[in-house]
Simulated assay, not measured.
Amino acid sequence: MRGPVSTQAVLFSLAFAVTIAAKDDPDYNPALNFRPDNVTLSNLYYWVGSYYNGTTDVELLPYAGLASTYRSLCPNLANTTITKQYETVLALTEPSTYNTGYDPVNAFLTLWPPGFNFSSLPYPTSSDETLELDSSLEFALFSSDPTYWVEGSVENNFNWTLNATQSPPYSLSSTLTEYDGQGGFSSNVTSCNGTDTVEWTFYPLPWNLNGTGYNLPDPVIDLEFDVKTANLSLEGYFIGYEVVKEGSKTGSSMVLAVGKLKLTFLGVLDAYHSDVLVNTTDTPTWLRTVGFQNNSLNVGYTSVASGSSVLGALAIGAWIFLMSAAFSFCA
């Protein structure tokens, strides 16, 4: 029978092994969710977790559902459907000590134009190379703002509810009461003032629209994922603006369209950039493999694996298990 003293001794030895495993990266801190620097990664794959590649379909229905009462804003758009499709990476990453509040997983959904070259994304070395500021990113949902250095705390943009489970698939949901994503959806649609086709930009209904007379519910996001696939959906309402150009300047007209929004992502695991999702925990947990030479599918893996790196990654997984066991024993 294991007692508290023997458990503490094992945990101490595992902590020592983790320190050894980080010898190729003297700044590596296993208490944080950043990948070690012994692998080359862009600012999209900077965190411990699972990454899924897929496509996202966006459907916009002007004046549908509860927005039907506002069709007088722009009758030309009534009974139309606007669709967009994007190449997508969904990052589901381990929360860290800088995350505030309850956060079972950091979810970063990024929508890119078709044919985008992901290898062009830089390794973050300055504040203007962070993921949120990349000019090619057309739209994104960040459950908390991605961070590359620990400088204070990071608040959650979502209020996740994690359905009870003992293993994957994990199912989460949130109502976005004070967050409307980053960016918008551009499309060429009929003008409100004639038959010409003009550029529009559509945005998920922002929370700060309260008080303007548009009484529509907040968007709801649902997420489910396991070791192979992930799917995410966002359902809510949008507002749209005609794009106004005056010389070299681009602006927006007054609000002219309101309608229903449905966003759907289906993706498969990108094993090359992903750590191993543990299959026996009631909250998302990852065995650290990227940079540890213990998963031949990962970026940076070589056939001559480092024994200390393997030990270190296994130690982190064992650390999580034994900490849970230790707390249970003490309880």
Rank of each mutant, 00 (worst) to 15 (best):
L131E: 06
A107L: 06
D128E: 03
V150L: 12
T97E: 14
F185S: 15
T147C: 10
L92R: 06
S191W: 04
N163Y: 13
V154T: 07
S153T: 12
F158E: 11
T195C: 07
N159A: 13
V89E: 06
A91K: 01
L111I: 07
W112T: 04
G181E: 03
N188V: 02
L92E: 08
F139A: 12
P104S: 12
L133A: 10
S174W: 07
Y148P: 04
S120L: 09
S143F: 09
N159T: 03
S136E: 02
T100F: 01
F108W: 15
L137H: 11
C192F: 02
F116N: 05
N163W: 07
P146K: 03
E87N: 10
D103N: 14
G194S: 04
Y102V: 06
W160N: 04
D128L: 05
L121V: 01
S174Y: 08
T147L: 10
F108D: 15
A91P: 08
N106V: 12
W149C: 08
S191Q: 01
T88C: 01
E138Q: 11
V150P: 15
T100A: 10
T175H: 11
T195P: 15
F139P: 06
D134Q: 14
G101P: 04
D145G: 14
T93A: 09
Y123G: 02
L176A: 06
G152N: 07
F118C: 01
V105L: 06
S135C: 03
G152P: 14
E178A: 10
C192K: 08
V105W: 07
Q166D: 12
S153Q: 15
G152A: 04
P114K: 06
P169V: 00
N99W: 12
N99C: 11
S173A: 12
T147R: 13
L109T: 09
N157Q: 05
S187W: 00
N117V: 08
Q166M: 13
T197A: 11
Y179L: 01
E138T: 12
T93K: 10
Y98H: 14
W149T: 14
T197M: 08
S186L: 14
S126V: 01
L131T: 11
V105S: 11
F118I: 11
T165M: 11
E178M: 09
T110L: 09
S187T: 02
L162T: 02
L92V: 15
L162W: 10
Y123E: 06
L176E: 08
S167Q: 14
D103T: 04
T175A: 15
A107V: 12
E129Y: 02
S187A: 13
A107T: 09
P168W: 05
S143N: 10
F158C: 13
V89P: 08
D134I: 01
D145M: 15
A140I: 02
S136V: 03
W160L: 13
S167L: 09
S135A: 06
L137T: 07
